[in-house]
Simulated assay, not measured.
Amino acid sequence: MSLVIGLTGGIGSGKSTASQWFEKKGIAVVDADIVAREIVLPGQPALKEIKETFGEWTIQNDGYLNRQALRSYIFQHVKARKQLEEITHPKIRASIIEQLNSTQSSYSILVSPLLFETEQHLLTDRTLLIDCTEAIQISRAVQRDHQSLEQIKKIIVAQMTRIEKQKRADDIVLNETSPDDLFSQLCPLHEKYLVLAHQA
């Protein structure tokens, strides 16, 4: 496995914009959110377990997971959230490790909004936090996701605080203005990671 950089940040922080920039530089990106969707596709063991644990209502008529219904349910039931994590997290982790092991680029990026919360940072050599104020997070997320202000705030509360993430991250990029400003901060980090990868 090559050098792995864990990239994280709260909702609306600009993780995707940052990870796409790294991809354009030829860096392999493994996205924990995409992996989380893949492991609950029809025919996957996790989907069967979710149905057995929570009931038929979790599956849509087309056989796919009813994400919206399940998301709403786990926000209202703390115990249910833990049950879901026990089903999905080990499978997500196994798939992430498999994908990171198969990359060919100088170093790899593991993008995960819950990098620290799920201990996925233990799969990385270094962590990068894309950070911004909560007000900017909310503004971006409301515009992008078409979710209510209340839903966005619930997601932010469920995630680790900015302060805690800042304490844990090795590198921090403040993304509060333009994409160009974000990219100008990522450039030296990319060069730094190439050097570290070469030394590894």
Rank of each mutant, 00 (worst) to 15 (best):
A28I: 04
S105Q: 07
Q99I: 01
E23S: 08
E49N: 15
S106A: 15
R81Y: 04
L128N: 02
K48Q: 14
G43S: 11
L65D: 03
T103V: 12
A80M: 09
S16A: 04
T8W: 04
Y73P: 03
G12R: 14
G63N: 10
L7D: 08
G10F: 07
T88H: 07
L84Q: 07
R93C: 08
D31A: 00
L123D: 03
E117H: 12
E119V: 08
R37S: 07
E56Q: 12
I97Q: 13
S13C: 14
V35S: 08
L41S: 15
N61I: 12
L47I: 11
N66C: 07
S16E: 05
F75G: 04
S139M: 13
A94W: 03
A141V: 06
I74S: 01
R37M: 03
Q68H: 11
S16Y: 02
R93N: 10
I39R: 01
I109M: 09
P45W: 11
I50M: 10
A135S: 12
V29F: 02
L115I: 10
S106Q: 15
R126S: 00
G14R: 12
A32F: 01
L123G: 00
R81M: 11
I130Q: 01
A94G: 03
S106E: 15
S72R: 13
T88D: 03
T53K: 15
L123E: 02
R126M: 02
Q68Y: 10
I130K: 00
T53Q: 15
T118P: 00
T124D: 01
T17G: 08
G10H: 12
Q120Y: 09
H77Y: 11
L110H: 09
I136F: 08
A32K: 07
E52Y: 08
G14N: 09
L123K: 01
K91D: 02
L65V: 13
P90M: 02
K91S: 13
G43Y: 10
W21S: 00
R67D: 10
Q83D: 14
H89F: 01
L122G: 06
F54D: 09
E85I: 05
I136P: 08
Y73E: 05
L115Q: 11
V78Y: 04
H121W: 06
S19R: 03
E23D: 04
E117A: 10
I27K: 02
L70Y: 02
L129C: 04
L110N: 04
T58C: 09
G6E: 05
P45D: 11
G14M: 08
L129G: 01
K48V: 15
L114I: 15
T88L: 12
A36L: 03
K79Y: 09
Q44W: 09
T118R: 11
A32I: 07
R67G: 09
A80V: 10
S95F: 00
H121S: 09
G26C: 02
V40P: 06
A36Q: 04
Q137L: 12
